[in-house]
Design a protein around this nucleic acid. Sequence first.
RNA 1: GUCCCCAUCGUCUAGUCUGGCCUAGGACGCCGGCCUUUCAAGCCGGCAACACGGGUUCAAAUCCCGUUGGGGACGCCA
Length: 475
Amino acid sequence: MSEIRVRFAPSPTGYLHIGGVRTALFNWLYARHEGGTFILRIEDTDRDRSTEEAIAAILEGLRWVGLTWDEGPYRQTDRLELYRQKAMELFDRGLAYWCVCTPEELEARRKEAQEKGEPVKYDGRCREKRILTPTQPAALRFKSPQEGVTVINDLIKGHIQFDNTVLDDLIILRSNGYPTYNFSVVIDDALMGITHVIRGDDHVNNTPRQIPLFDALGYPVPKFAHLPMILGADKTRLSKRHGATSILAYRDMGYLPEAMVNYLVRLGWAYGDQELFSIEEMIEKFSFDHVQKSPAVFNPDKLLWMNGEYIKQADSKRLAELLIPFLKAKGYDPHGPVQPVGGIEALIPPLRERAKTLVEMAEWALPYVTDPIAIDEEAAKKFLTPDILPSLRKFAEYVEGLETFSKETLESVLHRVLDEDGLKMGKLAQPLRVALTGRTFSPGIYDVMLLLGKERTLQRLERVLHSLDCKGHLD
RNA sequence: GUCCCCAUCGUCUAGUCUGGCCUAGGACGCCGGCCUUUCAAGCCGGCAACACGGGUUCAAAUCCCGUUGGGGACGCCA
């Protein structure tokens, strides 16, 4: 069996979006599954819209999700001479011709056809002009076959057939000398030995235009697999209107790349009832047999759930490292005096069950990495009431006398206060929680104190007791 | 408008090719309960779909035709 070669070929006209990542992912998975080669090619023949920043963002995005490429990135602008050569070869063989219609004229004719309800198609008026050396700006057009049918046996969609009368004489070389997409893609796919073209199904209609080009140039036609689109909640194509669509925006929102990949692979592909896949499992189980034919709606809720699942599983040390930038954004100083006992890594076990993103986790972590803390007004009003002060004070005193500050000793001291004052756990735990974290929700109260350490625990209790004593309210 | 594709819970999907095991399964979300020092997590339960109409067949979510609905494409963009 010959080697499988696939490619991801984004155009650098904007950021790398969700749909692009999924296309790249399916290519990558297929290559890895087959032991083939995954190639990255930048299609930057649109001189006006391609940018270096976009290229950088694409590479960064792919690296973030771990879709490493085996060859490339190739850039089409490095290969312009090649396309021109091949285009002129077609011209010399009488398979292409110069067209001197201006973009404005073409636009006007298109509009007219549209209005009359006629097929919007180039009328071929320059086809028989036989211009040898154009004296005015001219584009080179390919003579598309006008008889018969072109058939695609798509790996996902199956048999698709087009009547060749629908084919335009498409421009292969612009008047500025740059090739157009439909031409450069064919040249590159052929010359790079691409065996399987895996791309979004917005390209289905381009395929019957490209196949005759492969044929005309004497190249073998690769196999095609057209992936269904990803839609927004309103069932229109995913775009900025649906919120974040740049893959890097998800990184910045605190998503884990493996969660992103897992979510995306399940959008349009399934393996029985399984939801969670390791990368190895995806590679092993991936096949076009179970790729959906119809578009899928992007569901942020499910992605969020999945991210939570991965946060629960992730290695603590790695999670701690990933968390630090998010902590910094909230005012944490990695070299400052305010550190949780046991370091940032100690934060992970109590917080990972509660947070679905790193941003949320940083929010939960705030009371342990910053000082002083803000105390929620509502919470203080409800729980830091005069009647509980004596018990809080007593608890502080007992804690102060503790030789070992552990879950066991804290538990016994707390229960001692409960017994002596005839209180239920909830009655004292909530005020304590508010005094120590400023909030009504937190990890278990013993975990909180352990993370804070004896000194900071007492400090925070004192602060509350003191200001309530003196002023009857908090600062 | 023309061409291409698609159609199972709100969403992602299993089942469709190789009709019967489907009173249609799982997951997210939602609702209820349990657990409980809060919030989560966890556990248990519930609501919820074969677009419609014709065929074929003993039997259709599964096969065929039509309708409707949805998506995509019609650039000197990719």
